[in-house]
């Protein structure tokens, strides 16, 4: 815990906006305690493109900018069973293979439309690993995105202390 806050503080002094966005909070590589998740930067980069494809940048940040790619593996590692972890590990190759088979290039080199097509196809795949991988990563991407500080303070505002309860108010349309 202490080590992490030291790292955080260093990050702050050298420019949090670049090194460690304020809303990244606990999601940083230090959280990665398991070897398979300490994995190559390349896998994190691929995951970043996957989560960004699921929730892309529009006029508001997408999942990648909100560092959801750091939240997903922490959850898989800490909160899911071995089966889910295995599917998660296999999934990256499955994404790459699908991209290569369909577009003859890696997922990262595909354009946004092609990436979406790859993930959509996998989500309907007969291959249960592909389907489960998309389910897992998509679910966690939504969770990480909706529960990010950015979304909870700007888009779907979380009230820390409402100090009220009204039992009957008109629905706002």
């Amino acid at each position: 815990m202490q080590r992490r806050s030291v790292v955080k503080n260093i990050a702050l002094t050298i420019g949090a906006a670049i090194v460690l966005p304020a809303w990244a909070n606990a999601w940083n590589r230090e959280s990665f305690q398991n070897s398979f998740l300490k994995n190559p930067i390349s896998q994190e980069n691929l995951l970043a493109e996957i989560v960004e494809t699921i929730i892309p940048k529009t006029n508001t940040p997408g999942a990648k900018e909100l560092n959801v790619q750091q939240f997903v593996p922490v959850m898989v590692m800490d909160c899911y069973d071995k089966n889910a972890q295995e599917i998660y590990k296999k999934g990256f190759d499955l994404v790459e293979n699908n991209a290569k088979n369909t577009y003859s290039k890696s997922f990262a080199d595909c354009d946004a439309k092609q990436r979406l097509e790859v993930l959509n196809k996998m989500s309907k795949s007969e291959n249960s690993d592909e389907k489960k991988y998309i389910q897992l990563v998509k679910g966690l991407t939504i969770q990480g995105y909706l529960n990010s500080e950015y979304v909870m303070t700007n888009l779907r505002v979380y009230e820390y202390a409402p100090a009220r309860y009204h039992g009957c108010v008109p629905v706002k349309i």
Partner: peptide
């Protein structure tokens, strides 16, 4: 805040 929990309270 909710986002300050590493596992979102799970």
């Amino acid at each position: 805040m909710p986002w300050e929990f590493e596992h979102r309270n799970q």
